[in-house]
Every structure is written in C-alpha cells, then in structure tokens.
Amino acid sequence: MIKPSVLLFALLISAPAWYRLLLDEVDLVQVLIRFLIAVPIAAVLLGGVRFILAGYRKADEEPGSAVTPEPYEGKTP
C-alpha cells in the first residue's frame, strides 16, 4: 500500500504540471502521467530517507540491562 506521505511528495514534485494545467498550457492526461511517474520516484526517495534515518533510531535495550537506582548512603569522612 502506498503511504500518504509518498502521495503528498509526488503531488509536490508534480506541482509545476498542475500549475500549468490551471493556465491551460497542458492537458489533464499529461499532468496525470507526470503524477504517476512521480509516485515511484517519490517512493524511492522517501524510502532512502527512511533507510538513512533508521540507523539513528534508538535501539531497544535488553530486558535485563536496565539500571535500577539504589539509595545513596552519604558517608562523610
């Protein structure tokens, strides 16, 4: 299934074509073809960004590695 962020990014990529449609410089069919071409390009670009950012996510800690706080007994010399 295509994520909404991919469709929004594809719409952003094809925005100049949509603007030219408003000015009657291109046909609707050409604009839709450009949008359909932009969808896989946007999916690949956003997939690359997700892949790069996945390395920066905090790794899940092991269940036994949690540090438990202990009361501090202040010893004064």
Rank of each mutant, 00 (worst) to 15 (best):
L28C: 03
G64V: 01
P4M: 01
A59Y: 08
Y19K: 14
G48A: 09
V29F: 08
L22S: 13
A54Q: 08
E73Y: 05
A42C: 04
Y19G: 11
D27T: 15
R57D: 13
M1Y: 06
L22W: 15
V49T: 02
R50I: 01
L46S: 04
F51G: 02
G74Y: 12
Y56H: 09
L11K: 13
R50E: 14
V39L: 10
G47L: 01
G55P: 00
V39K: 05
L11D: 05
L45P: 01
Q30M: 06
P40A: 04
L45W: 06
A59M: 05
P63G: 04
L7F: 02
V29A: 10
G48V: 01
L53N: 06
L12R: 12
W18Q: 12
D27G: 14
E62R: 11
G48D: 03
E25R: 14
I2T: 12
V31Q: 10
L23Y: 11
F51E: 07
P69I: 05
L23T: 13
L8F: 09
K3H: 07
A66F: 10
E73K: 04
T68H: 14
A42H: 01
A15K: 15
I41N: 01
V67G: 05
A42I: 00
R20C: 05
Q30T: 08
L45C: 07
A15Y: 13
G48K: 03
G48P: 01
L53Y: 04
R34F: 01
E73S: 04
E73W: 07
K75T: 07
V31I: 04
L11T: 09
L8A: 15
F9I: 00
